[in-house]
Design a protein around this nucleic acid. Structure first.
Length: 430
RNA sequence: UCCUCGGUAGCUCAAUCGGUAGAGCAGCCGGCUGUUAACCGGCGGGUUGCAGGUUCGAGUCCUGCCCGGGGAGCCA
């Protein structure tokens, strides 16, 4: 069966086809009606003229409401006045299910109402565009690592202990004991990197922090490469190359969606190598120069990140944070033991941290000491210490939060629109 | 967890000092052969989040609770 999809309309000019889809919008002008039908791939203006169709069907076309599911048969022609540049002269149509009371109207809605109807909201044009771009970004992530010698090794969702002791975990029953939902695949990636050299994992991660900002979700997706024999500079090189690749891909393949979102494409076109690389100390200088009240040695807050990133047109890599504010596995800088060999990548336009990573401790004794200093249970990290016991190796990697990356590339304010069904602090429906 | 703002028609909002709850859109009826969130005319539509309290009288003031938005901390 040859399927017709609206996005392929240009191949069907002059031909008779059938669209299976949903009524997206309709306009009427007496004896001529414009049905805007969407099929998931695009929107087609279907023109129903009174004299060209049975009187019953003409009357029916007046009555059906938005999101009625239907099959429309007609001939495709070029038409500059229609969105997409093509329209269909309708010969006949059949209703699969008539709808008269679709809750989302063409006019404005509040965010609470839209989130309550998220399962329907994703049908609308902007949400559709965002999720198409999300797909493109995810595909680009996979392609980048697949093409560069990385092996995808999935890490577990159920974990026996915290990867990073500080943050809150979602606890769940695991038969007679309890388990936690993963916060990161990194520690497991370090084990698989010793088996495969270059690896990545890609999956959902869960944080039970009661965060309630436009940059936070309880459940979010993260892609995490881990590279054997890499130092901090190697990690930064990969992160930079990776981001450039993703942005280029979206610009190549999703221009139409970016237009729907009214994204300023010129800002994305500037994303090229090299990215600025500054130390934590230099970032603090920027804050102080701009009059931000900042205590040296603290971690950056969301507002601080915005101020720093707004000083650059490209993503900025901030490296060598004070080791005290970072996770236990961070390799100290040999030139200053108080600094960690880590990097955060801050997206431009105030989108904040999209990547966090660095070089991991590869010395057994030092790692053991750090685990104890952070009051973590040594027993639970026995397997992790084994990686340093049996053929240890310098290594590093990073994690990129998909939702923040999508929000930045799409130019939308809040991460909740970058995933089909966001899990936010006070909403787990639908 | 803390700070802050809000909850009124299906939706988005208004309602002066505490004094008869109102508009746009959607819906319904009618008109229009090129509309672009189409347009024009007409019509219906309310447990003011919940429970108490103050008052002659509460959408409005007070107390508690519920739900949500924005932010902080923490983080991707």
């Amino acid at each position: 069966m040859q399927e017709f999809r609206i996005e392929d309309a240009h191949e069907f000019v002059g031909k008779e086809v059938t669209i299976k889809g949903w009524l997206y919008n309709k306009r009427s002008s007496g004896k001529i009606k414009f049905l805007l039908v969407r099929d998931g791939s695009g929107i087609m203006q279907c023109v129903v003229v009174k004299n060209n169709i049975s009187p019953e069907k003409f009357e029916l076309s007046e009555k059906i409401g938005l999101e009625t599911s239907l099959m429309v048969r007609g001939k495709i022609k070029e038409e500059p006045r229609a969105i997409g540049g093509y329209e269909m002269e309708v010969i006949d149509f059949d209703i699969y299910q008539p709808v008269y009371d679709y809750p989302i109207s063409k006019k404005e809605h509040g965010i609470e109402f839209l989130m309550e109807h998220r399962h329907l909201w994703i049908r609308s044009r902007k949400q559709h565009a965002i999720l198409k771009i999300r797909h493109e970004i995810i595909k680009a992530c996979r392609d980048y690592f697949d093409m560069n010698g990385y092996t995808l090794v999935d890490t577990p969702i159920f974990t026996p202990s915290a990867c990073e002791g500080t943050t809150t975990l979602f606890e769940t029953k695991y038969f007679d004991t309890s388990a936690y939902l993963t916060q990161s695949g990194q520690l497991y990636n370090e084990a698989t990197a010793a088996a495969f050299g270059k690896v990545y994992c890609f999956g959902p991660t869960f944080r039970a922090e009661k965060s309630k900002t436009r940059r936070h979700l309880m459940e979010f997706w993260m892609v995490e490469p881990e590279i054997a024999w890499a130092d901090l500079n190697d990690v930064m090189d990969v992160a930079e190359d990776f981001i450039v690749f993703i942005v280029k891909r979206v610009l190549e393949n999703r221009k139409r969606e970016l237009e729907v979102l009214e994204r300023d494409i010129s800002k994305l076109e500037k994303i090229e190598k090299p990215f600025p690389r500054i130390t934590y100390g230099e970032a603090v200088e920027i804050l102080k120069k701009k009059g931000v009240d900042f205590k040296d040695g603290d971690d950056f807050g969301g507002g601080d990140e915005t101020v720093i990133s707004e000083s650059f047109e490209k993503p900025v890599m901030v490296h060598r944070y004070p080791i005290d504010i970072k996770a236990f596995y961070m390799q100290p800088d040999p030139e200053d033991e108080n600094l960690a060999l880590c990097v955060d990548v801050l997206a431009p336009e105030g989108y904040g941290e999209i990547i966090g990573g660095g070089q991991r401790i590869d010395d057994y004794e030092l790692l053991l000491k750090k685990i104890k200093e952070h009051n973590l249970p040594v027993e639970a990290f026995k397997w992790y210490l084994d990686i340093r016991k049996y053929g240890t190796f310098p290594h590093g990697g990073f994690g990129m939060g998909i939702e923040r990356c999508v929000a930045w590339i799409c130019g939308i304010r809040h991460v909740r629109e970058t995933i089909a069904f966001p899990r936010t602090l006070y909403r787990i429906y639908p």
